[in-house]
Design a binder for these strands. Structure first.
Length: 304
DNA sequence: CTCGGCCCTGTCCA
DNA sequence: ATGGACAGGGCCG
């Protein structure tokens, strides 16, 4: 096992591991203490979290990475040198101070940024991100998380680490072997055929979410909606949480409520129009950061 | 392009 | 105990 630590005090804008991985933007991390991801962060912030870096990223075997925030450092244990993986997955390369400075002054944004100072966006591997947000339709955080764990256990490559067995998220090829009925048995409900079809599309080479990286933001969102089960909202989630489009603002029910209550002039006739207006209001290039803070602030009972 | 009906399922609450 | 509302949408006509 390799170990290491990343000092956090010099990191611009700081870091909050628990808020980052439990805020509903990523479903590839789990708590080592097996506590569920709840709707609020009730359980203290120095727990160990783990993820399995997929083979598509390592270029070799999937690699278990474990990390916890403790005493001003991000400590890690892994099968490989995990430093670069952690920087990439947890966006430790973002200058959070600069991002907040580039975001307009606004009572709601200020309150949201204050409440979870140090929370960062994530940079998930694209296929797991795509599948988990297809599963997110009309679903709570803890249940989405449960679905992803069942998919990994059932179809993912088992990986031994530190005396325990972990499971990588299934590759497109592995997941494409699942039938709609198989996935309904894992409680995916009406999302089962969407996941099966999308896995098949990626496995056969019909389309890959990474292709959207080379497009302009709005074209990328449009490109991503070709996957079955992916509308504009889910496409925005994949663009923001995996493909580095930090300007993407997923219009979920929480943000729609915030728009109605705080920015009614941003309500356009359709998704694209509203999205453009609120993106502008949130400062443009890093509007997705503002969205994620506001979303989490409101979802966890923040005053409006 | 917009609209409404419909979809699985666990949890919460009357 | 038990039924209806609800939860971070998308598909189809």
């Amino acid at each position: 096992m390799e170990t290491g630590e990343i000092p956090l005090e010099t990191l611009p804008g700081g870091f909050d591991l628990q808020a980052t991985v439990e805020s509903g933007q990523t479903y590839v991390w789990s708590r080592e203490d097996d506590r569920m991801f709840e709707d609020t962060l009730a359980h203290g912030g120095d727990a160990w979290y783990s993820t399995v870096v997929p083979e598509a990223v390592t270029g070799g075997a999937p690699a278990v990475v474990r990390a916890r925030q403790h005493d001003g450092r991000l400590e890690w244990e892994a099968a490989v040198d995990a430093h670069d993986h952690l920087v990439r997955l947890l966006r430790l390369d973002d200058d959070l101070d600069a991002i907040m400075a580039a975001t307009p002054e606004d009572p709601l944004l200020d309150a949201a940024f204050d409440r979870y100072r140090g929370m960062r966006l994530v940079r998930d591997p694209s296929f797991p991100c795509l599948v988990s947000f297809i599963c997110s339709a009309q679903m709570r955080v803890s249940r989405i998380h449960g679905m992803q764990e069942r998919l990994a256990r059932e179809y993912g490559t088992p990986v031994e680490f530190d005396g325990a067995t972990y499971h990588a998220f299934p590759t497109p090829e592995q997941l494409a072997t699942a039938t709609e009925v198989d996935l309904r048995d894992l409680s995916l409900g009406y999302r089962a055929p969407y996941v099966a079809r999308t896995a098949e599309m990626v496995a056969t080479g019909e389309a890959h979410p990474d292709t959207a990286r080379s497009l302009d933001y709005e074209d990328a969102r449009e490109f991503l909606t070709q996957f079955v089960g992916v509308g504009e909202k889910v496409a925005d989630c994949v663009a923001l949480f995996s493909l580095d489009f930090l300007e993407a603002v997923p219009l979920d029910t929480w943000i729609r409520t915030a728009i109605a209550d705080h920015y009614p002039d941003c309500e356009g006739g359709n998704y694209a129009e509203t999205s453009r207006a609120i993106r502008e209001r949130f400062g443009g290039d890093y509007a997705g950061y503002a969205q994620t803070y506001v979303f989490f602030h409101l979802r966890t009972g923040g005053e409006t």
